[in-house]
Design a protein around this nucleic acid. Sequence first.
DNA 1: AACCAGGACACAA
DNA 2: TTGTGTCATGGT
Length: 285
Amino acid sequence: MTPPVATLVFEAADYDLAATLNSGQAFRWRPHGAAWAGVVGARQVVLEQRGEQVTARAVEPADWSWLKSYLQINSDLNAIVASFPDDEPIRKTVRACRGLRLLRQDPWETLASFILSSTKQIVQIQSVIDRLCEAFGSRLPRCDGFPPACSFPDAARLAAANEADLRACKMGFRAPFLLQAAQAVYTKQLDLAALSDLPLENARARLMELPGVGRKIADCVLLFSCGFSQAFPMDVWILRALRELYFPGRKVSLPELARFAETHFGPHAGYAQQYLFHYMRTKRR
DNA sequence: AACCAGGACACAA
DNA sequence: TTGTGTCATGGT
């Protein structure tokens, strides 16, 4: 007895679904032909874009507000891009990544995922998270003929796990960090839902109290799940982007680049960061 | 087969 | 305040 699958078709002008789902901000989307299959909350979701329309399929949704929030289809991309500094690197990256959006993801899943991301390639992060969901998540009803999927394990489930079982998912030295984060969230020592109401600096400081969470991972959580569009994650790709696009031929230290990024990109710096990141990752095949 | 990956951290200078 | 070695694992 398979549960009913509902379909929603919505307008998505200036929305590049593939770039959005495949730009290293979320790790659970996989292409299936022209469609993308993934998991949002406790549902398997299949998305497919045709022109300026996106078709969504999911099992038994009472409404679709959760998906519209996740995809941020109502965000004003023109206003965001207009807030960027008017310089050639930005013009070039925006031209190359037109329609790229930031998602609004679940804070716990985002925190856990980026704890697992440190010094790993995106394909490796994806596979670690797959193993984690397979081992600790719960099996979800299948959507049409797509492969079965598991939910992302909640903090309570991982707080009850032991380090050896986590290490079996191939996360290496990150296992104790994930475990302690799960325990902090489960015991409500850290209230992720409250972060979005704090000033950016305070929210960031809360996250950085966790072992294994420094400035970069904290900023990923703030940007991808808490709505802080000024948060600016600085990873190796962004360092390369800044050096190559803004300081070519000069040797510029990391703290110097951090100070530059802090002031140069404006109120939606994190959005600009995602454009730089995706541009650098995709420009040469 | 080396080199590197959406880093954090302790430690040295 | 800024630079360096270490951690675990597998893709390219």
